[in-house]
């Protein structure tokens, strides 16, 4: 019963008129599809851009990162975090949930060595809308340029924690704010963030 008849093509011939129309119509991209709204002073993230976040430990770098992750997962897209080898700090699931991150759309790649770092980030940019990466020492400017290009081509957002050796769309610098005990509870408000980029002058804003 097999191979008794000559093999015939099971692929249906597409309707030529429809194909023709398909070639003529240009895909329409709405401006709102290019950006992801972010609550707070940053207002929006543009797809395909690189954002760098810098700041001393305790100045709010991680909270700022979590707010970006939350903004992207709330649009039902995926996010990933890359933890470089030798970094002690890791994300806390409880803090991520408190910031509004959907944990089922967050993947974390842990213990990435410097040699593999660029490849891992490149692979994530292929499939994930936003990638947050610890910047290990000794990332070559050529690698950085390649990743910037990759992000732009794929429409993915790359958030690097550290100073990126290539051009960035937005540079954020977390400057921290006072922590106080209010009624026995630890609390902070008005943490300063310096925003630079998008053709606007450097401004300092306070985030909650």
């Amino acid at each position: 019963m097999e191979a008794a008849e000559p093999a015939c093509d099971p692929v249906p011939v597409p309707v030529p008129a429809l194909t023709l129309v398909g070639h003529r119509v240009r895909p329409v991209t709405l401006a709102t599809e290019q950006v992801i709204p972010v609550p707070g002073p940053l207002e929006r993230l543009r797809r395909g851009s690189v954002v760098s976040i810098e700041g001393a430990p305790g100045s709010g770098v991680t909270s700022l990162t979590l707010s970006l992750l939350a903004a992207v997962t709330s649009t039902r897209e995926w996010v990933a975090a890359v933890e470089a080898e030798g970094s002690h700090g890791t994300l806390s699931a409880a803090a991520a949930v408190e910031a509004g991150v959907a944990l089922d759309r967050l993947a974390v790649v842990r213990g990435v060595s410097t040699q593999r770092w660029a490849n891992v980030v490149a692979a994530l940019l292929e499939g994930v809308t936003l990638t947050v990466a610890d910047l290990p020492l000794g990332v070559k400017p050529a690698d950085a340029r390649r990743l910037t290009t990759r992000a732009r081509e794929r429409g993915a957002i790359l958030v690097v924690l550290g100073s990126w050796p290539d051009r960035v769309a937005v540079r954020l610098r977390a400057e921290g704010g006072p922590w106080r005990f209010v009624g026995g509870r630890l609390a902070t408000w008005s943490r300063a963030v310096e925003i630079e980029g998008r053709g606007r002058p450097v401004r300092r804003v306070a985030v909650a």
Binding site: A107, V109, R110, R116, N119, V120, A123, L124, G127, V128
Partner: peptide, 20 residues
């Protein structure tokens, strides 16, 4: 995303890509 993450697991090992 699944495709990209599975590819990474092939590269780094199953346990290297995790979800919190």
């Amino acid at each position: 995303a699944t495709r990209a993450l599975i590819r990474l697991q092939g590269l780094l090992g199953h346990a290297a890509v995790v979800q919190p």
